[in-house]
Design a protein around this nucleic acid. Structure first.
Lengths: 165, 165
DNA sequence: ATTTACCCGACTAAAAGACTCGGGTATTTA
DNA sequence: TAAATACCCGAGTCTTTTAGTCGGGTAAAT
């Protein structure tokens, strides 16, 4: 598991897609403008996202990308792994230079941690992230208006809490 | 929060220190050999770890480094932040190029996620990681020997569970 | 004194990151 | 069917980060 700006770009773009993809496909040009990411770079990222079946493309005018499944079933670990493919983590496994037991021990400890991070990020879906944002926006709006909770908002709040967000 | 091989080196070195520092300070040369990390690179990393008061140095023959506080009170987020200092995350904050509201929205969502990752890693101490390893080792040993739980091992097992590891 | 081992800044090769460029091809609409 | 849209894709480039070397220090122990 690696966490760089590349992964940030990918998650940002996917969030944009989740937020703006309700009515039909979203073009990369639109995402490029809104998120200030270069179009060609987006194309590269989406090529990998498509290969990993996180998005589907629609060609021609009016085309673009859409999420391949609903936002609740796409998690952050999926996205980051997809765009980071190719560069393996070059752990001691595979190479023969891990003769003494001590090195293997800490390497395994690191792999263990890495696995924990992956599991953690697997538990955060695009839907959960956007819902959390909704909760914030709504709670601010409510604070200003002094309004009472409505059913849909308390529901997302409960969901967010259940997801430990 | 950024997660690269540099952070992995730092955590690995700190784990080595936690495992081998019971009897006096550990020299960087020893860590360098065991973990196969260049000595000079370790010096750079430890300069930052020392500035952040995660380790303390002992100069002269027989000297080296020791953890500045016990392993339960040093967490993974501390270590990674320490060695990644300087390179800011260049989010939209600070720069003026975040005029339209849409960009800010997803940027904030990312910052939100980043914060969650940080909180998660803050909850994992060096002690917890090494304890988890102990649990594995012990459980394997027990599986081979068919032995019964001893008090100290069940204790660490319970600790690990409490920490959600 | 000499050895050990931390301390520190400057420099550098190689890799990764973040693009650009220039050509495609599928699909829609006029 | 021509034109426009927008995906598709490989190759090249500039910049930053990584990981490491080099060469000199300084504090402490034997």
């Amino acid at each position: 598991m690696k966490l760089t700006t590349r992964g940030r770009y990918a998650v940002t773009a996917m969030l944009d897609l989740a937020l703006n993809g309700e009515q039909g496909p979203v073009s990369l040009a639109a995402i490029s403008q809104r998120q200030d990411i270069s179009l060609s770079y987006l194309e590269q990222l989406f090529a990998k996202l498509r290969k990993n079946e996180l998005v589907a493309s629609v060609r021609g005018p009016g085309g673009g990308y859409r999420l391949s499944r609903d936002r609740e079933h796409i998690n952050v670990a999926d996205i980051i792994s997809a765009v980071n493919e190719s560069t393996d983590s070059t752990s001691c496994q595979g190479k023969g230079d891990c003769q003494n037991g001590e090195a293997c021990l800490t390497h395994q400890l690191w792999d263990d941690l890495s696995q924990q991070i992956h599991t953690f990020l697997s538990g955060i879906s695009l839907g959960a992230l956007t819902a959390r944002r909704e909760v914030k926006v709504v709670s601010e709006r409510q604070a200003r208006a002094g309004a009472k909770d409505s059913d849909i908002y308390t529901e997302t709040l409960v969901n967010a809490k259940a997801l430990n967000l």
